[in-house]
Write a protein that binds this DNA or RNA. Structure first.
Lengths: 228, 228
DNA sequence: GCGATTAATCGTCACACTGAGGATAATTGG
DNA sequence: CCAATTATCCTCAGTGTGACGATTAATCGC
C-alpha cells in the first residue's frame, strides 16, 4: 500500500531552574541545516519505538537522566505536534514535541547530533532565533508550563527532594515572572491537601528564620488551583 | 539522508449534540484492517499539506462543513499524537488526533474510505470496540472537551447562532453528564463578561416563560471558570 | 554581644464567588 | 381561570482571596 512517507522526530522542551533562572535545554547543531545554530534537543523516532519512549531516550542522551530512579523525578508529557510542510528544508518532517520538567540536573551532555548542549535562560532563548520552528515550540511549551503550575502540583518537580515553601514559591515566581506574597502563598500551599508533606526537619543555614522542610505529596491536581 | 519512513494520518474526534445526546462522528470502515468495524474518521496527510489543513479537509469530507462561513462556527484543535508501533498492523503509522466541536450539522457524508458515517451517542461509542486505538483517542478527546468547558467559552460552539441560557446549560449537562442548578448557572453565565451577548429577542414557543436569546460573545476564556 | 536585617510563620479583615434554595414572572395546556 | 412549566431574580451562609499587620528566629555588621 502506498502512502506519503514522512520523517517523524521528537523534540524536547526541557525546563529546569538554575542560578535563579528558568532555563531550557538547548543544543548547538552540528549538522546542516542550521549548523552552528541553537535548537531544541531531539531526533528521529526509531522504527519500532513508541513516541514517549523516543522522548525519554533523547532526554537521557542529552541530560544523562537514564535510571528509573531519576526518571521518576522528571515529568515528561506530550506538548504538541508540528508538521508544517516547510518546517524542515531537507524532507517532509513531523515533529512530536514533548515537555519535561526537571530538578537541577548534572551538566547536559552533547548528544550524537549536537556539538554542545547547555542550559539557556528562557528569557534569552525566547529572543534567540532557534532552528526550524523551535521558537514556536518553546513558546508553546512555556505557556503550557505556566498553565500547568496553576492546577497541578508539578511545581514541586522543579525542587529537590526536600524543599521549603519559599523554594516552591520561587518556582512559581520564576516560571510566571511575577512576585508572590509569601504569606498568602504559604497559606494556600498548606491548605492544598497532598501538595506537600512536612518532614519535621528544618533548614539549617541561610539568612532569616529557618524554614520547615517538605517533600512532594501524593496529589497531582491542585484543589483549589493557585492562580496566576 | 536515510530516515525511518512513517505514514502520518489525522484522526478526528468530532462532537456535536443531537437528539439530546452528546454524539461523536464515526464511520464504518470499508477496508481492512477492521473492515466493517467502527472507527473515527481520518486519513493520510498529503505530501504538502499542513496537519491542521489535513484535519479540516477530512472534517469537510465527512461532514460537508467546507465553506469558510461554516468553518467559523466549528472549533478545531489538536488533541494529541498517537504512535504506538503496533497501533496499525499494516505499517508504522503516527496519527495526529484533532478535536472538533460543532453545532448540529447536516447528516454526515460517507467519505472515500468509509462505507458509512453516523453520529453515534458518546455513551455507546465508549462501550463499542473501535478500530485501532480510537477508543483511547475518543476517551482523551472527551476528557479534553469536558475540561475545556470549564475555562473556555466553547460550550457556545455547540449551540445555534441564537440560543438561550437553558440551551447553554444543556450543553454543560450533556457533556459533563450532570445536572446543574438553572438559577446559579444563569447567574454565572451573565456574570462572565463576553460569554454571551443578548440579542433583545425572546423565544416564541415552548412551555414556560419565554427566554431571552443570546449570541456568542467575544471572550474565549472564562473568568471565573465554571467548575464541574 | 547587640541592634539591624532578613525571612518564616501566623493572624485579621474586607471582598468576591459559590451552592442551596425561596420567590416571582410569563407562558402553555386543560 | 388553574396547574404545570420554565425563566429570572434574590437572599444567605460558607469558602477562598488579596492586602497587609504582627511575631518569631535566625544571620550580619560592627
Amino acid at each position: 500500500m502506498a502512502f506519503p512517507p514522512f520523517a517523524v522526530t521528537v523534540d524536547l522542551v526541557v525546563f529546569t531552574i538554575r542560578d535563579d533562572q528558568l532555563c531550557v535545554l538547548t543544543i548547538e547543531r552540528g549538522e546542516a541545516p542550521f549548523a552552528g545554530g541553537q535548537a531544541l534537543p531531539g531526533g528521529f523516532v526509531l522504527p519500532d519505538e513508541d513516541l514517549a519512549d523516543a522522548a525519554a531516550r533523547e532526554l537521557a542522551e542529552e541530560t544523562g537522566v537514564g535510571k528509573d530512579a531519576e526518571l521518576e523525578r522528571v515529568h515528561l508529557e506530550q506538548l504538541g505536534t508540528y508538521g508544517d510542510p516547510t518546517r524542515d528544508p531537507r524532507m517532509r518532517t513531523v515533529s512530536v514535541a514533548y515537555l519535561a520538567f526537571a530538578a537541577q540536573l548534572s551538566e547536559p551532555i552533547a548528544g550524537t547530533d549536537a556539538a554542545a548542549a547547555q542550559w539557556m535562560p528562557v528569557a534569552s532563548a525566547l529572543t534567540t532565533s532557534l532552528a526550524f520552528d523551535h521558537g514556536q515550540i518553546l513558546a508553546d511549551g512555556l505557556e503550557r508550563a505556566r498553565a500547568k503550575l496553576e492546577y497541578t502540583t508539578l511545581a514541586a518537580t522543579f525542587c529537590r527532594d526536600e524543599f521549603t515553601i519559599a523554594d516552591l514559591r520561587h518556582v512559581y515566581e520564576l516560571v510566571w515572572d511575577v512576585t508572590i506574597d509569601p504569606r498568602n502563598f504559604h497559606r494556600k500551599v498548606l491548605a492544598s491537601e497532598g501538595f506537600v508533606e512536612p518532614t519535621g526537619e528544618q533548614t539549617s543555614q541561610g539568612r532569616g528564620r529557618p524554614a520547615q522542610l517538605f517533600t512532594r505529596g501524593d496529589a497531582t491536581q491542585l484543589h483549589p488551583p493557585i492562580r496566576r
